[in-house]
Design a protein around this nucleic acid. Structure first.
Length: 197
DNA sequence: CTTTGGATCGTCT
DNA sequence: GACGATCCAAAGG
């Protein structure tokens, strides 16, 4: 089974449409490290009070208003990174946060990048853990995840998204908490924390 | 098992 | 000047 880069057209829809579509897709690093995406959250533009893009473009969230398929990476709590895939038909300020992944290749390298993980399940079962395991930092800001020769790629190994994904409210936000914009692979051991409803 | 608090700094108000 | 789209270790049941 080979990896094929995800077509940009798949990402050119509203974040809430793209998010469940990304479940079971794979993030692939140039050194072969790979994790299967098992948990995502959609973040919108001006209509979404929880989004970094709620007030329009800023220096930080500018990538969210760029073309789909690029990486929006930001620093949270002064010490962790979070990775998003920019989505949307045009510059609407939308992105999908990659919240958790299941290790699928180069586990040795993933363990080296994230030594605090005591078990392999903990290598990428959280948005900042995933970034640490995959070495996603400022150097990758704005990277085109659809570029077949890029350092970080969004690829498909032929596994379809779950027919009936789990769904809940988003985790860790303080505004617009009612939207159920989180999707995950039901029963996957790498889904982060305990699931809200 | 659950709960709590500390770490740490770029970004926006 | 305040606040996070988080993680972890320590402490308590």
């Amino acid at each position: 089974m080979s990896f094929v880069v995800v077509d940009r057209a798949l990402l050119a829809d509203h974040a809430t449409v793209v998010a469940p579509r990304l479940l079971n897709k794979i993030l692939l690093r140039d050194d072969g490290r790979a994790v299967r995406i098992v948990e995502v959250e959609a973040y919108g533009g001006a209509e979404d009070g929880a989004s970094h893009a709620r007030g329009g473009p800023t220096a930080r969230c500018a990538p969210m208003f760029g073309p789909p398929g690029h990486l929006y990476r930001y620093l949270i709590y002064g010490m962790h990174h979070c990775a998003n895939v920019v989505t949307g038909p045009d510059a609407k300020g939308q992105a999908v946060l990659i919240r958790a992944g299941e290790p699928v290749a180069r586990l040795d390298a993933l363990r080296v990048a994230r030594p605090r993980a005591r078990r392999d399940v903990e290598l990428a079962n959280g948005p900042a853990k995933l970034c640490e395991a995959m070495s996603i930092g400022p150097a990758l800001d704005g990277a085109d995840l659809c570029d077949p020769s890029g350092l970080l790629r969004l690829v498909d190994d032929g596994t379809a998204p779950p027919r009936r994904p789990g769904r809940s409210t988003r985790i860790g936000i303080t505004r617009d908490t009612a939207r159920r914009w989180r999707w995950y692979v039901p029963g996957d051991p790498c889904v982060s924390g305990r699931s809200p409803s």
